[in-house]
Each structure stands twice: as structure tokens, then as C-alpha cells.
Design a protein around this nucleic acid. Structure first.
Length: 106
DNA sequence: CCCCTGACGGGCG
DNA sequence: TCGCCCGCCAGGG
């Protein structure tokens, strides 16, 4: 936790099973909505780390924007394995599955 | 040191 | 509702 990527990793790891979050939500929880892109960058650096559930992090639309980085539809499979319904690279009931670190985490 | 790009988000027309 | 533009931080050329 150096107030940077590590913080992001910690928050991502805190995402409950079967739940998802967004880059902006995590960025906002850490220090404002300025680092939405940075979160994505952090995920990119961490996508090699299987201890980080980066597949649970999507954009505000609930679209698996980073699915390409996982290889094929690996990201979608991981989400479906958690009971999350994914259709056309988009999470169904995203609003219901959404996990806000700012609200639910404290 | 300057410029471009990026797994994003919000605002405006 | 859709599309365009600007701002955000960090890394690479």
C-alpha cells in the first residue's frame, strides 16, 4: 500500500465472490475519480498475477473491456463461473452485482 | 523534455 | 439516446 498500484490491488482483492466493480469506483474510493485509467493500468500490470481477480473489474457500463487481455473469453468464463451472467461481453444485472468500495467497504 | 497512448469517466450538444 | 471532446495519472518513444 504505497498509495498507488498496491492500493488498487488491495481493493480488487476485497471484491466479494460473485460481485463486480468498476475502475472509476475503485479510483474514487482511493483518491477521487481521477485515476480511472490508472486502475486499468494497474490491472494491466497485474493481469499476470492470478491472485488478483481483475476479471471482476469492468467499466461503468459493465462491459468486459479488458477481456482481450485475458485471452479469448477467459474473463467471461471466470465471471460465469461465479454465477455472473455475461451476454455479448456485457454483465447482466450489473447494477445489482455492482460492488462499491466506497459504500459497501468501510 | 515533449508528445502520444491507454482495461475510463463525465459533460455537452 | 448517441457521439464527440476534455481531463485524469503513468509509462514509453
Amino acid at each position: 500500500m504505497e498509495n498507488n498500484f498496491d492500493d488498487i490491488y488491495q481493493v480488487v482483492k476485497l471484491i466479494p465472490f460473485g460481485r463486480v466493480s468498476s475502475y472509476g469506483a475503485i479510483a474514487e474510493y482511493l483518491g477521487g475519480k481521477r485515476g480511472a485509467r490508472i486502475v486499468g493500468w494497474a490491472m494491466n500490470a497485474a493481469h499476470t498475477d492470478d491472485s488478483i481477480p481483475a476479471h471482476r473489474v469492468v467499466n461503468r457500463n459493465g462491459v468486459l473491456t479488458g477481456k482481450a487481455f485475458f485471452g479469448g473469453n477467459k474473463m467471461q468464463e471466470l465471471l460465469e463461473a461465479e454465477g455472473i451472467i455475461v451476454k455479448n461481453d456485457k454483465i447482466q444485472h450489473f447494477k445489482d452485482l455492482f460492488w462499491s468500495p466506497t459504500k459497501e467497504l468501510l
